[in-house]
């Protein structure tokens, strides 16, 4: 696209986009250098860049998240792209100290699997995998991570590896398109409010919450 064409497109887009596009041509914007685009047209959280792990690590991580949220009669964590999400979060979202804690726990689990069963974690049976994970959860059970109503905004720094793994897996899964639409109920445009709506025993939550 040549400069002239680009300017026409920018003008057609109008408003802040045009201003920003024009500003980009004349140097960095004064007030906001971030590329602003609507979130709805951006990448999904399962497709975000991550290059922290090697192949075997990825295989084991996939096995771990699948053990937390497995495929049942509905899709599981691997189907929902959670391994890539967790890798992205560990690489880009956790603090340096938290990342070190995660990697230490992750590698210790890989080593323990080889020592006890002479196999990679991903090659263990589901029962063998769960034995490891449940043992880790037993060890971690005193962590404040398990406190009632430890809500979304308060990430527990220093939470043990197993808690980090579960938290990132669960957020990645239930926020994913697969989790939100095939396991939860996704109703982005309800068009009405019904406060008497019946909840049957097997019904899932909505995928969204209000933000007052």
């Amino acid at each position: 696209m040549d400069r002239r064409h680009f300017l026409q497109v920018a003008t057609l887009l109008g408003g802040a986009f045009a201003t920003r596009a024009l500003a980009d041509l004349s140097g960095p914007a004064v007030s906001d250098s971030e590329a602003l685009q609507p979130l709805a047209t951006g990448p999904s959280i399962g497709e975000l860049p991550a290059n922290l792990f090697q192949i075997q690590e990825r295989t084991d991580l996939a096995a771990m998240v699948e053990a937390v949220i497995p495929r049942t009669d509905t899709p599981g964590a691997v189907d929902a792209g959670v391994p890539n999400f967790v890798e992205h979060m560990v690489q880009h979202w956790l603090s340096d100290a938290e990342r070190a804690l995660f990697l230490k726990g992750f590698r210790a689990l890989q080593v323990a699997s080889r020592e006890k069963h002479s196999r990679e974690f991903s090659q263990l049976t589901m029962d063998q995998q769960l034995d490891f994970l449940e043992a880790l959860e037993d060890e971690a059970s005193g962590s404040p991570w398990y406190d009632f109503a430890n809500v979304q905004r308060q990430y527990v720094e220093g939470a043990p590896f197993i808690c980090q793994l579960k938290e990132l897996t669960i957020f990645g899964f239930y926020s994913s398109e697969v989790g939100a639409t095939q396991v939860l109920r996704h109703d982005p445009m309800p068009m009405q409010f019904d406060g008497e709506f019946v909840l049957n025993e097997d019904d899932s939550t909505w995928s969204m919450i209000r933000l007052m």
Partner: peptide, 25 residues
């Protein structure tokens, strides 16, 4: 800055799977 009605509501109607870091702070 200018914020145009609709056009500049960058977060509007983003489904959960499009919000960075699954909307963790």
């Amino acid at each position: 800055r200018d914020i145009q009605h609709g056009l500049d509501y960058l977060g509007e109607h983003a489904p959960p799977w499009k919000v960075p870091f699954a909307n963790k702070a």
